[in-house]
Simulated scan of single mutants.
Amino acid sequence: MTQEPIFEESSGNVFADLGLSNADELLTRGKIGLQVLRVLKQRNLKQREISELLGIPQPEVSHLMKGEFQRFSEGKLLIFLKRLDTEITLHLRPHHTLNQSAETVILL
């Protein structure tokens, strides 16, 4: 008799699904880091050029290009986007409240 596979619906945050305590932070870093990678890949730069552009040592570029975003803070990843001439807009709203319409937008 074959056992049916068990599936569990995702929460939308794989890090939370894995039970990690800093899941929101890891998801945020992942989203920002992926955007940094997209821009870098579009520019087709060598690691030495990326190092100079972002102001980080070449070994750190290697970690970034491998998707090791946990090595960088959200702030550092946002700085990378700014150095890549990317406009950043933050949408701030209350977390889990009845009045979800209150929102602040910040353009960096």
Rank of each mutant, 00 (worst) to 15 (best):
2 T>R: 04
2 T>H: 02
2 T>Y: 04
3 Q>D: 11
3 Q>C: 05
3 Q>R: 08
3 Q>S: 09
4 E>A: 11
5 P>S: 07
5 P>G: 04
5 P>Y: 01
6 I>K: 06
7 F>I: 11
7 F>P: 00
7 F>C: 03
7 F>Y: 13
10 S>A: 11
11 S>W: 05
11 S>G: 00
11 S>L: 03
13 N>W: 02
13 N>Y: 04
13 N>G: 07
14 V>K: 06
14 V>F: 05
14 V>N: 01
14 V>R: 06
15 F>R: 03
15 F>E: 13
16 A>Q: 05
16 A>T: 00
17 D>P: 04
17 D>V: 09
17 D>G: 02
18 L>P: 00
19 G>T: 02
20 L>C: 10
21 S>I: 15
21 S>P: 01
22 N>G: 02
22 N>T: 13
22 N>M: 11
23 A>W: 06
23 A>C: 01
23 A>F: 06
24 D>N: 05
25 E>A: 09
25 E>Y: 11
26 L>E: 09
27 L>F: 07
28 T>V: 05
29 R>C: 01
30 G>T: 09
32 I>D: 05
32 I>S: 02
32 I>F: 02
33 G>L: 04
34 L>P: 03
37 L>S: 08
37 L>Y: 03
38 R>A: 14
38 R>L: 14
39 V>I: 15
40 L>Y: 09
40 L>C: 06
41 K>R: 11
42 Q>W: 11
43 R>P: 00
43 R>N: 04
43 R>Y: 04
46 K>C: 14
47 Q>H: 12
47 Q>Y: 14
49 E>C: 09
51 S>M: 12
52 E>H: 08
53 L>W: 01
53 L>V: 03
54 L>K: 01
54 L>P: 00
55 G>N: 03
56 I>W: 06
56 I>F: 00
56 I>G: 02
56 I>R: 02
57 P>C: 06
58 Q>W: 12
59 P>K: 04
59 P>I: 15
60 E>W: 00
61 V>Y: 08
61 V>F: 10
63 H>T: 13
64 L>P: 05
64 L>A: 08
65 M>E: 13
66 K>S: 13
66 K>P: 00
67 G>F: 02
68 E>H: 13
69 F>M: 12
69 F>R: 05
69 F>T: 08
70 Q>F: 00
70 Q>L: 01
70 Q>W: 01
70 Q>R: 06
71 R>C: 04
71 R>P: 00
72 F>C: 03
73 S>C: 02
74 E>R: 01
77 L>I: 07
79 I>N: 15
79 I>L: 15
79 I>S: 15
81 L>A: 08
82 K>G: 08
84 L>M: 10
84 L>Q: 07
85 D>E: 14
86 T>G: 02
87 E>Y: 12
87 E>G: 11
87 E>W: 12
88 I>K: 07
89 T>I: 14
91 H>E: 15
92 L>K: 14
94 P>E: 12
96 H>G: 06
96 H>Y: 13
97 T>P: 03
97 T>M: 08
97 T>L: 11
98 L>T: 07
98 L>I: 09
99 N>Q: 12
99 N>K: 09
100 Q>W: 11
100 Q>K: 14
100 Q>F: 15
102 A>P: 01
102 A>F: 10
102 A>M: 10
102 A>N: 14
103 E>L: 15
103 E>W: 07
104 T>R: 05
104 T>I: 15
105 V>E: 10
105 V>S: 08
107 L>I: 09
108 L>W: 12
108 L>F: 13
